[in-house]
Computed example of a mutant assay.
Amino acid sequence: MTGKVIFIGAGPGAPDLITVRGYQTIQKADCIIYAGSLVNKKVLDNRKSDAKVFNSAELNLNEIVTIMEKATSENKLVARVHTGDPSIYGAIAEQIRLLKEKSIEYELIPGVSSVFGSAAALEKELTLPEISQTVIITRPEGRTPKPKDESLESLASHHATMCIFLGVGMIDKVVSELSKNYPINTPVAVVKKATWPDQEIVKGTLKDIAIKVKQANITKTAMIIVGEVLGPIDFNDSKLYDATFAHEYRDSKK
Rank of each mutant, 00 (worst) to 15 (best):
I225R: 09
C163G: 00
L128V: 10
T25A: 11
S73A: 15
R80L: 01
T195I: 06
A14E: 07
I184S: 10
L126N: 05
V81T: 03
I64A: 02
E200W: 03
H82G: 06
K100Q: 13
P183D: 12
S118A: 15
I225L: 09
K148I: 06
P140I: 02
R80G: 11
S157L: 08
G84R: 03
T144I: 01
K28C: 02
K239T: 06
P187R: 04
I233H: 13
M223K: 01
P197M: 04
G84Q: 05
S118C: 09
I64C: 07
P15R: 05
K4A: 06
D208W: 06
V5K: 03
I26F: 05
A14C: 09
L77Y: 05
M223N: 12
V5W: 09
I201H: 04
K193W: 11
L178W: 02
C31R: 10
K253Y: 10
L61G: 03
I225G: 00
V191P: 06
G84Y: 04
P145A: 10
T83F: 06
F54M: 06
Q27F: 07
E123R: 14
T66D: 15
T221Y: 15
F7T: 02
G231C: 09
E141A: 10
T134W: 04
A93M: 09
I209M: 02
Q27P: 02
A10L: 07
A10D: 04
T127R: 07
A93T: 14
A35G: 08
I64Q: 15
I211C: 00
S37I: 00
V5F: 05
G90P: 05
G111F: 01
E150Y: 13
A71W: 03
P183I: 14
I8A: 02
S56H: 01
D234Q: 11
Q133L: 08
K253E: 12
K239S: 14
E153G: 07
K192W: 00
Y106G: 00
F165C: 11
L61Y: 11
Y241I: 08
V65A: 02
K193V: 01
D251W: 04
A194M: 08
E177H: 08
L38P: 07
M1A: 11
S87D: 02
I67P: 00
P86Q: 08
E125M: 11
E101N: 14
G167W: 06
V213G: 06
K254M: 04
L17V: 05
K193Q: 13
A210S: 15
R250D: 00
N75A: 15
T205G: 04
E107R: 09
V191R: 02
A93K: 09
I184H: 11
I136N: 03
Y182M: 10
E228Y: 03
T161K: 10
